[in-house]
Design a protein around this nucleic acid. Structure first.
Lengths: 117, 117
DNA sequence: TCCATAATTCGAGAATACTCGAAATAATGA
DNA sequence: TCATTATTTCGAGTATTCTCGAATTATGGA
């Protein structure tokens, strides 16, 4: 269950357009961007973008919220933290304390509430 | 250049067998594991595994070192840090200080030298 | 209600990725 | 040198993914 989600998130980010979209939304921060604005900014056809936004949304990397006729998308950094934590789980086998600082950072709350993280 | 590498690393981790291999090597820590040991542990055919190890190696997520007849693979956490930093670059747009804690953690040296990170 | 705008869903074609058996390379020891 | 073990490379078949045009759904305003 946990693995499936991590796998989907990583596969989602491992595609150029989706990586561009995610990074654009990370930059946009808490304001987010509408699908149309993303489409314009990255020069990707609306229907193609919609497919990619669906993939990012399904694995929790972005969140969608309707705003009138438009739909606003925001990056969800919480999922990023879960992802990094999953990747570094049980780091260094018998000596987990060696990697604790790295893992801890994945747990600390950054952003003071912005981006839901 | 930077982007290409991040993309390859994410695509590499977005495949079940490669994700399993990487996490196994993260657990194994600085000792690493031979290709054969990984093949046995994950029940993946040697030639198939070799292809996946090649992908992980090319994008810097693992490092290979020959040891007699065997080849020992180790996870390279340095690449993970670069990856996380790339993903969260310019986080929160006008308010980068909001995400500083998260990014800083990606810069701090964990592991005290283990895993080359 | 009717029209225009915003975004998504559908279906199909082209490109890419995954896996495997077979063959090749590398290293060790008799 | 020859046989054995460890791993990689090659080629092909199958499956998955990406992109696009066309059609559809949803919202807001005249």
């Amino acid at each position: 269950m946990e693995k499936e989600n991590a796998l989907n998130a990583l596969a989602a980010l491992g595609q150029e357009t989706r990586l561009d979209v995610f990074r654009l939304l990370v930059k946009a921060g808490n304001e987010g961007m509408t699908a149309g604005a993303i489409s314009d900014a990255l020069d990707v056809r609306p229907n193609t973008l919609s497919t990619h936004l669906g993939a990012l949304s399904r694995c929790g990397l972005v969140q969608a919220e309707r705003d009138g006729r438009s739909i606003c998308y925001r990056a969800n950094l919480k999922t990023m933290r879960v992802l990094v934590t999953y990747l570094l789980q049980d780091c260094c086998g018998g000596n987990p304390e060696l990697c604790a600082p790295f893992l801890n950072m994945a747990k600390t709350a950054p952003c003071d509430g912005a981006n839901d993280c």
